[in-house]
Structure formats: C-alpha cells, structure tokens
C-alpha cells in the first residue's frame, strides 16, 4: 500500500531535488548557448563579414568605419594556449607518472595535496604574478622591450593548466589494473619497460583526455591572460611579442559597450566562437574517456 506519510513526502522531495540537480547542467548549458546566440545573432546575420572576421587583423569596433577582424585574437589565443601546452604537457605528464608510479607513502600524499593547492590559486593572482614579477624578469633576462607577451602568458597559463592535467593523468595511470604491471614484470620487463610499454599505452585515452581538458582550460582563461599577454592586437612572430586573447577582448570591452549595438553583438560573436571551440574540445575529451571505459 502506498501511504502518503511524512517519509513518502521526504522521499518524493529528495527524488525531485536529485533529478533537478541531475538535469541542471543540461539546462544551464543550453540556456547559456541560447543566450549568447540570441545576443550575437543580429550581428552574425547582419553586419558580420565572415571573410573579414577570420582573415583580417583589424579589430576596430568603435571606429567611424568599424572593422571586425578577429584573426589576431584567434591567433593570440591559439599561440598562448599552444605555448602553455608545450610547457605543461611534459611537466604534468611527468608529475603524474612520478606520483602514480614512483612516489610512495608520505611523498605521494604531500605531492598530491600540493598539486591540488596549485589548482586553487585564483587566476587574478596568476595575472598579478605575470605583470609584476615575470614582466620585469623577462625584460632583464632576455633584454627585450616588454615582458608582457606570449612567453609570459604561456608560462602563467601552463602553470595554471598543469594541476588539472596532472590530477586527471594520474587518475588515468592509476586506473590501469595492477595485473598488467605484474604480468609485465613476470615476463622480465624493467621498470621503465613496464611504464613505457604497458602502463602508458593502456592509459593513453585518459592521458589524451587530460591534455584536452588542459587545452580547454587554457582556451577559456581570461584574467591572467588579459594581464600577462600585453593585450595587443598583433600576430606574434616571436615568444616575446604581445598578443590579445578572445576572452580578454570580451572582458575588457563589454563593460562600457552600448547594449544591443554592433560592438556588443561582435563581442557575443567572439563568445559564440569560444563556446563552440571549448565545447568541441570537451566533447572530444569526453568521447576519448568513454573509449577507455568500453575496453
């Protein structure tokens, strides 16, 4: 018999709350996509010239003859993220290998806590480090006119992305069953052979997912990049050149822009571009991770 007493209501409420929590992510992501598309749509269908958007570097939305060339912003984001990955992929995969395969006992626990603490540093603090410590340091060491650029922002972003990549990569390495390692050792493999020929191939999907999530993190980071990149519309030809990221452009220009105008719409168009790119990166990471589970 179905008795509608207190326990029944508690049960139903709990069910409902958990269901709402479960689908909220979907609701939010769809809501955000609809919102940025709605704000950007008038611009995309109206004044936007796709050829200019992707091939011109002239981002002059407030000029008397406005031009909306986003090439330099796209290249800026890509170069900073790329540089960050060059630095952080070997660093964090190395760290994950050490924590998962070599470190034991206290060392391991301390390292794990430290890596997680590194992930908790707010991005504006990283930006501050880039601006006030790295900027004069880079100027002095390399004798360049300005220390704000791809190198500075890439280093900062690399350090920001490394903890997430390390944590996920370590989980992937730990997920390799010990039986694999034991079997390899039984066949006479050395420790390096176990890691390079057995553990890494077995966990490569997870490692790839870790790298992709790091890329996604780098792509979406705003404040630290805004402060450390120099925020200059420029196609970089050396690591010391200043660049400007898509995210930083939105952050710095949206505040004083007339709501609903072309400039407003163009910034939301940058938002749509960012959303699509990060969505694809995360989706790829997800599909790759699913690949492991099926095995």
């Amino acid at each position: 018999m179905d008795r509608r007493d207190l326990a029944w209501y508690v049960d139903k409420t709990a069910q409902w709350v958990i269901f709402a929590g479960g689908i909220s992510a979907i609701v939010f992501i769809v809501g955000i996509f609809i919102f940025i598309t709605k704000e950007g749509l008038d611009f995309v269908l109206g004044p936007l010239n796709l050829g200019e958007f992707f091939t011109s570097i002239a981002w002059r939305p407030t000029s008397n003859n406005p031009t909306y060339g986003a090439l330099a912003l796209i290249v800026g984001t890509a170069s900073v993220t790329g540089f960050a990955m060059l630095l952080s992929v070997p660093l964090s995969l190395g760290a994950a290998l050490f924590i998962a395969e070599f470190a034991t006992g206290k060392t391991r626990e301390v390292l794990k806590v430290l890596v997680e603490m590194l992930a908790a540093i707010p991005s504006v603090v990283w930006g501050f480090v880039g601006m006030s410590i790295m900027h004069p340091l880079i100027m002095r060491i390399f004798d360049v006119p300005l220390g704000l650029g791809v190198l500075n922002a890439g280093l900062i972003l690399g350090l920001m992305a490394a903890p997430i990549m390390t944590t996920i990569a370590e989980d992937a390495l730990k997920a390799v069953p010990d039986a694999y390692r034991e079997a390899a050792e039984a066949l006479g493999a050395t420790r390096w052979e176990v890691i390079f020929k057995v553990v890494i191939p077995a966990s490569r999907n997870g490692l790839l997912a870790a790298v992709l999530l790091g890329v996604g993190r780098g792509f979406g980071e705003t404040m630290a990049v805004l402060m450390a990149s120099g925020h200059a519309i420029n196609i970089p030809t050396s690591p010391f050149d200043s660049v400007r990221a898509l995210t930083a452009t939105i952050a710095s220009e949206l505040g004083d822009t007339v709501r609903g105008g072309d400039h407003w719409g163009s910034l939301f168009t940058l938002g749509i571009l960012l959303f699509v790119v990060t969505f694809v990166i995360n989706l790829t990471a997800d599909i790759v991770v699913r690949g492991i589970r099926k095995k």
């Binding site: 981002w59 805004l226 120099g230 925020h231 200059a232 519309i233 420029n234 200043s242 710095s252």
Partner: peptide
Amino acid sequence: KLGSRDMH
C-alpha cells in the same frame, strides 16, 4: 596603429 598594449 594596431599592436598597442591596450590597458584597462
């Protein structure tokens, strides 16, 4: 000129 450092 493009390429100036645009501060906030």
